[in-house]
Design a binder for these strands. Sequence first.
RNA 1: CGGGGCGUAGCGCAGUGGAUAGCGCACUCGCUUGGGGUGCGAGUGGUCGGAGGUUCAAUUCCUCUCGCCCCGACCA
Length: 574
Amino acid sequence: MRWNQTLLETLKEIPAEAEVVSHQLMVRAGLIRKVAAGLYNYLPLGWRTLRKIENIVREEMDAAGAVEVQLPILSPAELWQETGRWEKYGAELFRVRDRHERDFALGPTHEEVITDLVRKIVRSYRQLPVNLYQIHTKFRDEIRPRFGVMRAREFIMKDAYSFDRDEAGAEASYAKMSQTYHRIFKRCGLRFKAVEADPGAIGGSFSSEFMVLAATGEEVIASCTQCKYAANVEKAQGRLADPPKAEKPVPRQLVDTQGKHTVEEVAAFLKVPTTRLAKTLLYDADGELVAVVIRGDREVNEIKLKNHLDVNALTLATPEQIQGATGAPVGFAGPFNMKGVEKILMDDSLEGAVNLVSGGNRADTHATGVNPDRDFKPTQVLDLSLAQAGDHCPQCGAPLEIERGIEVGHVFKLGTKYSQAMRATFLDEAGQEQFCVMGCYGIGVSRIAAAAIEQNHDEHGIIWPLPIAPYQAVLLPVAPKDPQAGAMAETVYQELRAAGVEVLLDDRDERAGIKFKDADLIGIPLRLTFGKHAAENLIEVKRRDTGAVELVPRPDIVVRIQTLCREMLDVASG
RNA sequence: CGGGGCGUAGCGCAGUGGAUAGCGCACUCGCUUGGGGUGCGAGUGGUCGGAGGUUCAAUUCCUCUCGCCCCGACCA
């Protein structure tokens, strides 16, 4: 491709609206342009990278025995109503109405549509297992789209759905997809980690997320410093590093704490460690008031709480609700003598703790000597806290560390959640009707592009891993006064193309400095310069990643570039 | 949805109750330069986000509205 022929404009300045580096570079390098919040045009360069990612995904999915289909973006409300997700998916589901006032959804995911398809076709165990996938545009009405294509309202996703005759089969399908995902992300040149996750709105019994490790990632991961355990903090179970010591219970007493609300203020005022405090939080769970009691230095994991309570809406109680339940303003709730509270859930961080400090259920008052079972009776004691650095690994006991990541893939064991709701059944050998056992597997194709940049860039621009680079090599004729250099660039361009190398020829009438800057910015792995060495029949080849420069004799250039491409491809795919 | 910020040329930004609204970059033309965003000159480009109000006069003040960004809440 010739630069003048493609629509490629680079920007010298950082767009004001872009906060993270991948977003800034995607705009500056001419990969994307914004249409509206969370909606982007993919320009030729960006689209090429996307297609390359898609092709890697396609090759690996096909190799794993999955088959590609294409489902419609619009799907009728009836299908979503069958599984209850028309309501349950909430405001994030884009809804549209046709001229006959019929409701449709713009698909954020396709469990309903695929299950509907399969139930209409599959009747016998002989037709199973089957794994269907598509690469398509998805829609989610994100509350706050941000970071460019990282969290967009319209994005490209590969979604796959497996249907098996039994749990064992489903387990095998899941394992196969998990392996395939490792291969895909490796081939995309990403440094990533698979972690245990919360299945969220998709549901099912178990899921793993594939996280690209990056400091700007929106996801927080707790991983063991010794063993392989790693989990999204939404899911992670950290064991307490410093469990409470046994002590003789003392009587409960109210103390005046004069407007000290926060855990830190109260602990400092009473000269006790924050671990001594029993933080009491009130939640409105589908209209019911639920109290959560947790150690002062720990945070409630609302995902765990919501999953445990199995409710649709979980929010912190309003000041009015808190006043009604405790008789005190916000900041002075204690777990005893509350009114209208349905459940008191105690985090296991307080298991065995004695002589705690809690709110006194009276303005400007806290209680000391608060003891579980004596002063209040927890409805249940369970793990409700957010794992933190230093917690002990639930598997080997070593300390956990906290990292950040970008979720690029998520695999789920769905069980029969959808096949039961939608009656996707088949007859087994015994002629018995059985529900399909399902799995589903998503990859954020457009997000991979952003994540790859987040991981591979420097102060000059993008450093594309070769397998997903829009072009493998960029050719820079930089000596316009020397017709020989220009002619050499032209013939090398033709020869490389003929040899199957993906090349971009910077045929603009620009100075060398501009071409060098732009080549760095758009991050093409190999740069060929036709300039002062052309007279000696030499071409300068520079690698974008290592910066290594070599002078290659004109006759060897095609073979040399092919060799370099192969090397860089092998490194990426291991 | 709550809090905050911003909407002025393609991009980054100044500016003002008054006349023809500016700077840098980009773009066009000419010359110059030619291995890391060359220099000089001449140009093109604006409903000052939109609506309403106050005023002799509004891009500027007020109200509303739309859009964008950040924090939070929320959320595969």
